[in-house]
Design a protein around this nucleic acid. Structure first.
Lengths: 253, 253
DNA sequence: CGACACATTGACCAGACTCAAAGCTAGTGG
DNA sequence: CCACTAGCTTTGAGTCTGGTCAATGTGTCG
């Protein structure tokens, strides 16, 4: 299965080099990481709150989310992770997981022992820096999510979520012009925005009627990108260089 | 002003050693950091969204918060920072600030050039690890805030905020038994919880009537710590070792 | 053809917001 | 020492965004 290794190296290198400079040694360090591949079926937890993680997980394909459940059983999604992401980077340093990780659809993942990851990061300055930087960008997204959930009304809030998703996907070349595939159900959107599923349904209808965004059959289509950003008060600064600003908006994957 | 240096070293060492192991060299690295001290007056911004930071700021005394303002002018507080904290750790790696930093009261800060900080972190593994870990703990607090703001009703949400504050202050020895000083206005609490000030006022009255928590003249008193945690669904796991679990609940500062 | 999960609708409810007016309190200047 | 101010807290009234409950569509998969 050398295809897996190649994919892993290419995704990691691509993702990390948009946020830090990697030299040949760094790239080699990435390519020689010991790794185990696994396919996680749709809607299966990858790890749970309280688990002790010993491996880091790199998403190769599919969407993944972090979430927490509070006492009443309500779920809050904390972040979405797309191919190339390392959703449990923090697990490298913080032994016990304070949240769970879920595959939103069938997902291909690479698992790298923490020991090896830490070793590689210590040896290869570029890799270490890139990982640290990536972790800090994650934190920046969390901050924006706090603002989104704390201060934006439902319509704006939902629009903002999709602005982020579209921008990140586009940077990864996973969009088809204005449209992209998404495994999110309205329930997922509700849990990511802190709204109720019923209300999300109504907000999505509003966005559709306004021709800003429409989702059907697991495919989202941005109807008016400018207006969607305006409504959402979307400022991609918080993505730092996650979204290479200059990525072309078009061009099939 | 050697007292400043001593305070800085002691706060930093204390804070970082609760979350990572520091050897003599690490401590020396901390003690020899080049540093500039400054007093920030009450309600003054320390830096603003969009600024390029070249120094890291360590809080010596006073409370500080990070916040963002959205287009309508609404403010969301993202985190609170207490003595010993480095509220802009992320600035070390992410050049442009995606949020602002405000002194909630008169605050004494130490400023350390990023260059020096990075150098020290590179040389002293312990320090580097501790800083990275601290940054990841910050991210963990952000995640919990997303949950708080996204999924908890106002009463529980407000209770949770104060559970976090009390736990962190206690770990720093800044509580007097069940009570502690706080510079937070009800407006600040509103902006930290995503509520309106009027509603916060009513919730605080409820907490007071229930004898869980009462705030008067910038002093908060926990009336029933067990119950407050229960109501808030507070699980200090997410603070990782920020709150040395075994810190005594009592003993004057 | 069910079964199941998700999307949609309608009716109703409530938690939280807005607006507006008073109280407080601490600091300021006369 | 006291009015005056500014900022914060408190209260009341009315509204509305978003939640709940429950039923009905719709689509996919075995």
């Amino acid at each position: 299965m050398d295809a897996n290794r190649t994919l892993l190296a290419s995704l990691l290198t691509h993702q990390l080099s948009t946020i830090a400079t990697l030299d040949a040694a760094d790239r080699r360090a990435i390519e020689t990481l010991p790794v185990r591949f696994r396919t996680i079926p749709e809607r299966r937890d990858i790890f749970r709150e309280g688990d002790k993680a010993v491996e880091a997980c790199v998403v190769l394909s599919g969407w993944v989310c972090r979430y927490k459940i509070i006492s009443g059983g309500r779920r809050q999604i904390l972040s979405l992770h797309l191919p190339g992401d390392i959703p449990d980077l923090q697990g490298l340093t913080l032994e016990v997981m304070d949240h769970s990780l879920l595959a939103l659809e069938e997902t291909r993942c690479a698992f790298i022992p923490h020991e090896a990851m830490r070793g590689a990061a210590d040896l290869s300055t570029g890799l270490g820096r890139a990982l640290a930087r990536r972790a800090l960008i994650d934190a920046s997204l969390f901050r924006e999510w706090i603002v989104n959930v704390g201060r934006r009304p439902a319509y704006e809030r939902t629009a903002h979520l999709f602005c982020e998703i579209y921008t990140r996907l586009r940077a990864l070349g996973l969009t088809n012009g204005p449209s992209f595939p998404t495994p999110l159900t309205q329930i997922d959107v509700a849990d990511a925005t802190g709204l109720s599923p019923v209300h999300v349904n109504r907000i999505l209808q509003q966005l559709r009627r306004g021709r800003l965004l429409s989702i059907k059959a697991k495919t989202a289509v941005i109807g008016d990108w400018e207006e969607l950003q305006r409504v959402a008060d979307f400022n991609p600064l918080y993505l730092h260089h996650l979204a290479s600003d200059l990525a072309p908006a078009h061009g099939a994957a």
